[in-house]
């Protein structure tokens, strides 16, 4: 890629575009936006091949990271227009958290006939791991990753101190990291 080999880009696209597109589509719920994210992600690799350092890990996680960043940028631009709607959502007791999860469409139980079996297994693993988190840890994680909210926005949304949200997110991630099945997801190709 660093030598400007278009075929290398093509191979990377063949291999990873599905994963990148799927993540963008999951975040944006919008095909056109997801396509924009895919294009920006692969063009970033093309324009700045040295931005990816193989010594720091595999390419696919890096691409997903770039795609997530682009998708969140796009999502935030849209959320600026919708902020008043978010402010009307219920807040912070236990039942409220569950309602809020549902109202954001953050159920980890929806299926998809286009799922590959491997992806189904991945989703089951991730869904179970998330389900095992206390709602107060799970919610900030899902709002941040899947809805593109910042920690500051999550704190405001849940009427919690920013420090509390940071700590809950960190604790939740540390618990997810310790989930054995989940650790296989990033160790496998």
């Amino acid at each position: 890629m660093a030598r400007g080999d278009a075929r290398a880009l093509e191979q990377v696209y063949e291999r990873h575009s599905r994963g990148v597109y799927s993540l963008a589509l999951r975040l944006l719920s919008d095909g056109a936006g997801a396509e924009e994210v895919v294009q920006e992600t692969f063009l970033k690799l093309w324009r700045q091949p040295n931005a990816y350092q193989p010594s720091r890990g595999r390419l696919f996680p890096w691409l997903l990271g770039v795609a997530h960043h682009h998708a969140v940028d796009l999502l935030r631009r849209r959320q600026l227009e919708q902020r008043h709607r978010i402010a009307l959502l219920p807040t912070n007791n236990g039942a409220g958290l569950v309602d809020l999860l549902e109202s954001f469409g953050l159920t980890s139980s929806e299926g998809d006939p286009q799922l590959r079996v491997g992806a189904i297994e991945d989703r089951l693993v991730v869904g179970r791991a998330l389900a095992n988190l206390p709602p107060e840890q799970r919610l900030p994680i899902e709002l941040a990753y899947f809805r593109g909210l910042t920690q500051v926005e999550i704190a405001a949304l849940l009427s919690q101190p920013l420090g509390t949200i940071k700590t809950r997110m960190r604790l939740g991630l540390q618990q997810l990291r310790r989930t054995p099945d989940l650790s296989q997801l990033w160790s496998e190709r």
Partner: peptide, 17 residues
């Protein structure tokens, strides 16, 4: 933490572009 983020991102419903 990035590995956890990758696991979440990898496990979304897979759709062909």
């Amino acid at each position: 933490f990035r590995e956890v983020a990758f696991a979440l991102g990898k496990a979304v419903p897979q759709v062909d572009p």
